[in-house]
């Protein structure tokens, strides 16, 4: 299908004797959000780190935007990474840089961009997350929710086709969590991005998921819409929604 932007086939990743990912397969269409649930240590973060090449899988196939990442050299992988956004659990803002410099960082390879254009892109990205006023502040001066928003602004500045969210609402209060979840949804609608969202937050999953997958013992235990999965008669799966 032309609309498929992420295709994973029989992905495996072991750390020593610890079988983290045993056999994961799924497809994700353009403009759709897939939420991945699972217990802590079930390999959810490992899964998305395999997608961007931060962790090398032991077996399986990863096709992103029609390209098999195993066939790409370092340059090719870096080009592909520019079309993929990644929001880290801790937001991973560069401590030594201001918010402006953080947002300009992904643009540094684009030498054709003029200073004014760069400035406009930074302001536009911050406007999209509702934080224009913090442009000259340091990350240490921001609250947890603001850091996540700035991280999201940095993620969307290159207008990626796929965004990977690693526990976007962890450590935030319920109100801020809801705001971040709604922001994820707003970005999906505005930019028509596909996203894989790793979370423990059922409210976040409910707001953002077009489809939902639960990982158990390194395998996909169930996949379907939020309603389908939440009404599962399997006790273990149902316990996520209680």
């Amino acid at each position: 299908m032309e609309n498929i932007v992420v295709e994973i086939e029989h992905l495996k990743k072991y750390f020593g004797n610890n079988k983290v990912l045993e056999d994961i397969s799924f497809k994700l269409e353009k403009g759709k959000n897939l939420v991945v649930l699972g217990k802590s240590g079930s390999g959810k973060s490992v899964l998305i780190k395999c997608l961007v090449g931060l962790i090398k899988p032991d077996a399986g196939k990863i096709i992103l935007l029609g390209k098999n990442i195993a066939d790409l050299d370092e340059k090719g992988m870096n080009e592909l990474r520019k079309k993929i956004g990644f929001l880290f659990q801790s937001a991973a803002l560069y401590d030594s840089m201001t918010v402006r410099e953080n947002l300009e960082f992904p643009l540094r390879d684009n030498k054709e961009l003029k200073k004014v254009e760069r400035e406009n892109l930074v302001k536009e990205a911050l406007k999209n997350v509702g934080l224009e006023e913090v442009i000259d502040e340091m990350p240490s001066e921001l609250s947890g929710g603001m850091r996540k928003r700035v991280g999201l602004a940095r993620t969307i500045i290159l207008k990626p086709e796929i965004i990977l969210y690693d526990e976007p609402t962890t450590g935030l209060d319920p109100i801020t969590s809801k705001e971040i979840s709604q922001l994820i949804l707003a970005i999906q609608k505005k930019f028509n991005t596909a996203a894989i969202i790793i979370t423990h937050d059922i409210e976040c999953a409910r707001i953002t998921a077009n489809s939902l997958m639960i990982i158990k013992d390194g395998k996909s235990a169930i996949e379907g819409s939020f309603e389908e999965v939440s009404q599962s008669k399997d006790k273990w799966i149902h316990s996520f929604f209680e």
């Binding site: 780190k49 961007v52 931060l54 870096n78 990474r81 880290f88 803002l93 401590d95 960082f105 390879d109």
Partner: peptide, 21 residues
């Protein structure tokens, strides 16, 4: 300390996924 802190807070990973070496 700076680099270790960057590693712990995933800043080095963030740089890598943004296409920078």
């Amino acid at each position: 300390a700076e680099l270790a802190s960057m590693k712990v807070t995933e800043q080095i990973d963030a740089m890598e996924v943004s296409g920078t070496n």
